[in-house]
Design a protein around this nucleic acid. Sequence first.
DNA 1: CGTTTTCTGTGCATTCTTGCACAGGACCGG
DNA 2: CCGGTCCTGTGCAAGAATGCACAGAAAACG
Lengths: 294, 294
Amino acid sequence: MDNWDEIRTAFQVARLGTVSGAADVLGVHHATVIRHIDSLERRLGAKLFQRHARGYTPTEAGRDLLAVAQTTEEQFAHLSSRIKGQGETVSGELVVTSIAGIADLLTPVMVSFQRNWPEVRVRFLTDMRVFRLDYGEAHVAIRAGTGPEEPDNVVQPLARIQSGLYATKAYLDRFGKPASDADFAGHRFVCVDHENTRAPFYRWLRATVQPDQIAYAATEPAALEEAVRQGAGIGFISCFRASLDPALVEILPPRAEWESPLRIVTHVDLHRTRKVQAFLSHLKDAAKEWAFCS
Amino acid sequence: MDNWDEIRTAFQVARLGTVSGAADVLGVHHATVIRHIDSLERRLGAKLFQRHARGYTPTEAGRDLLAVAQTTEEQFAHLSSRIKGQGETVSGELVVTSIAGIADLLTPVMVSFQRNWPEVRVRFLTDMRVFRLDYGEAHVAIRAGTGPEEPDNVVQPLARIQSGLYATKAYLDRFGKPASDADFAGHRFVCVDHENTRAPFYRWLRATVQPDQIAYAATEPAALEEAVRQGAGIGFISCFRASLDPALVEILPPRAEWESPLRIVTHVDLHRTRKVQAFLSHLKDAAKEWAFCS
DNA sequence: CGTTTTCTGTGCATTCTTGCACAGGACCGG
DNA sequence: CCGGTCCTGTGCAAGAATGCACAGAAAACG
């Protein structure tokens, strides 16, 4: 049963009883309608209509088609209005992905968004691998740094998260607290185990301290943070995370050059929808309230 | 939501995830598939798929379409197999029409046919007006005489119903019983009120008796028969109907020239179907058993 | 790391569908 | 009885959808 258009044509003929009437409704020439019916009947091997000078009377098969196509037309009409409307409504799924490090910063935003738009089911994905927006894996991605992006992705700056140098009280009791970045001699540091990282504060750290001062290195951000908390040395932790842990002591005040940009990335097709726009404005509003950001 | 073929194309793309795969299944070029999707999305004003190098991933709208079109395809497949099969099966409606005069002759045939083919719903229409087969009003018509027929109707002889001259005992007690058609003087007759009727026995009657002997005339066959039963005169009644009424007495034995042919008429498109053929053979078998016919 | 495969996407020629004009038949109303 | 109207049906030309060839890009594979 290929060629659904011919079924649609036959449906209108069965509904209206005449070829001409169906042609008017369908917006085609009546010759086209005749040819569609002929083609469909030839393929089915059965007559759908009794032809006579006053019109086409559906046979039993034609009435069967009428009933089936009637519901089909209704289903398609509903589908059409759903799809046309869904770009304008804030409902359905909203899939947001981000790096794991800022999950606890974002979660309150997600929850309040869902509270504001109860029709929306929020999915918040944090995973090792980067989710790809052009594969339809997420509507919105929140990413750190200034990495390259796909051509079809629209990128917006969200905030600049401040990071500072921290150490535990236990570390300071043992090694003392440096007064400035000129006073780092004899101190040990925690740094990412990657020569050419893009994180600005780690680039600054590698340029400032001696390599043998890096006492602890790891690839995983969470592992680095944990190392500082365990007293392995002085290390960078984002200010908002450090503020949650009273055991951490700020070594130096945050600097603008240490700030790391946070970007909102959306796929160009989804960016225009009201659902995504609603979330974006909600997210930006929330970001304005964030302390430790600029 | 016109152009159902584009929905079908989009359905296959959503189902398979690639344009190329959908093109193979649909038996068209992949460029055609791309153009269908583009056209459909443009008309809906919403993206159905996220495009990427490995294929098309359906969006929320695309998944919605997938679900709707899935059931549509199934419905159409069922419809197709029903229509293709129904020409070969004996089921559904069977509409038979005839003149009212032979309804009680046909009814047992219809009932036994329905008993033999329980899938069939029989509708037996007897009405004043002649039902038109080319308007799809009936599958089979049983008609008397040798009237003209539509070009698309296939006509078969069914039987020749015998009619005889009858009167009531009361009439005979009063007027006597004529020994032959040469002994009709002084008798009164019941005849159709129509100069040029096609019924052979009435033509014979008008040619045989004097006009003033026709004591009772009517247009309706049932009214004529009732007039004979009421003793209005001698009149023609079909033998099978007269045999049911013991009050009627046969005046003259049936003659071949009084016989009226009974024709089966079907529309050429429906004539080929097994359902109609089954009824026709059943009807012919039953007609062989009919007494008062030849 | 280069190669192969498998996708999508687009300009161009072709085929096929569609529209048009007209014929023919049936029905309706005067 | 006869013109007007509303149907269906068909040959022919215009237009639109399709197929083809090729480009380009990304993933898979050895």
